[in-house]
Nucleic acid binder design. Structure first.
Lengths: 192, 192
DNA sequence: GTCTATAAATAGATAGAC
DNA sequence: GTCTATCTATTTATAGAC
């Protein structure tokens, strides 16, 4: 198999395992086993665990950029685009109840490890933040960045409690609440 | 030294280390080193790492109960008591920016490990939830539990983003936003 | 109740054959 | 590019002296 394909398979498997089990918990053996590789061959593709982590974050950055571009192109209004973001909580509800938000949990784990890639992991958040800020700016909001952080904050809070209580209905209620908030906060007809 | 004192020192040290470094990352050697104990003697007090975790969670439950009782006694109105909760985000801001919320991050780590004590860790959340629900009920809110979860959700979201972006001002703004929300959502003079 | 010594398993990482 | 074999460090955990 071409090295590029094997490398991609490793990064894909690591991405999934880092999400489901955590970065620190996941061993080389775990990843190698999923890919069907010997531990020895592993080191041909990646010299250290931190290199795999960097590749995983790069992959997440690329996947997120593509998703944001699709939302940008696929929804007509800024509000609809913001709701595209909010509704990933519904789309990924089951996985979030099991393992939390992949962005938030990696960020918090690397913070605890005081890991060199801590800020790089947070850059995935920044992609969402910039996307949301653009939508609020388009809606004419002066504090577009503050509102972007607010939406990001709420989605993180919902994910955290969804993991703790594993309550589907709670997620649905909070998503509905965010839609109501968005409609009230940014009405389609300008305020007086 | 009496066994009880040493045990308490171990649990205290483990509590801090589990928070700062994470549960999985923290080794017996780490804890023993903080307490100034040999690894061998460690096993006189705790047979497994899971036993220490259970003791740490029991300690957190007790400490939280005491804190909630103090808030209940120390603030005159339900709204002031809710704000006692919200303002721990300010009081613990620096630690939260470094290591996240101790309750949320342990809950998410144990979820990923699919750990037997996962639900026990979530019980700390339930203490806060019940406390907040009582305050909203006292304010005459019919959906007191939903509002309690909402406040808990926002505090978790703020903690998660505070860890990712390490932005003090963001925490302050969101705490101010929660106070405004509380005043608007539950006005002192009843609505028409 | 605390210690040293040590076992057994697993981690990350390397060397060298094919 | 993939393998087996191996190294070294660290982990959880135990035995037994004091």
């Amino acid at each position: 198999m071409p090295a590029q394909d094997t490398r991609e398979q490793i990064v894909e498997a690591a991405d999934r395992l880092f999400y489901e089990q955590g970065f620190d918990t996941t061993s080389f053996a775990d990843i190698a086993s999923v890919v069907g590789l010997s531990r020895g061959n592993f080191y041909y593709h990646f010299k250290t665990k931190d290199e795999i982590l960097d590749a995983v974050i790069d992959r997440r950055l690329a996947v997120t950029r593509a998703m944001l571009n699709a939302w940008q192109a696929g929804a007509e209004t800024p509000k609809a685009r913001i709701m595209s973001f909010v509704r990933i909580l519904i789309a990924n509800r089951a996985k979030i109840m099991s393992h939390g938000c992949p962005v938030g949990t990696l960020s918090s784990e690397l913070a605890k490890l005081d890991h060199a890639s801590r800020d790089k992991a947070a850059a995935v958040f920044t992609l969402f933040r910039d996307f949301l800020r653009r939508q609020f700016a388009e809606l004419g909001e002066p504090d577009a960045d503050g509102l972007a952080l607010h939406v990001l904050m709420r989605s993180q809070g919902v994910a955290a409690l969804a993991t703790a209580f594993r309550d589907e209905a709670f997620v649905d209620r909070e998503v509905a609440g965010m839609e109501r908030w968005l409609d009230t906060r940014c009405p389609d007809t300008p305020r007086n």
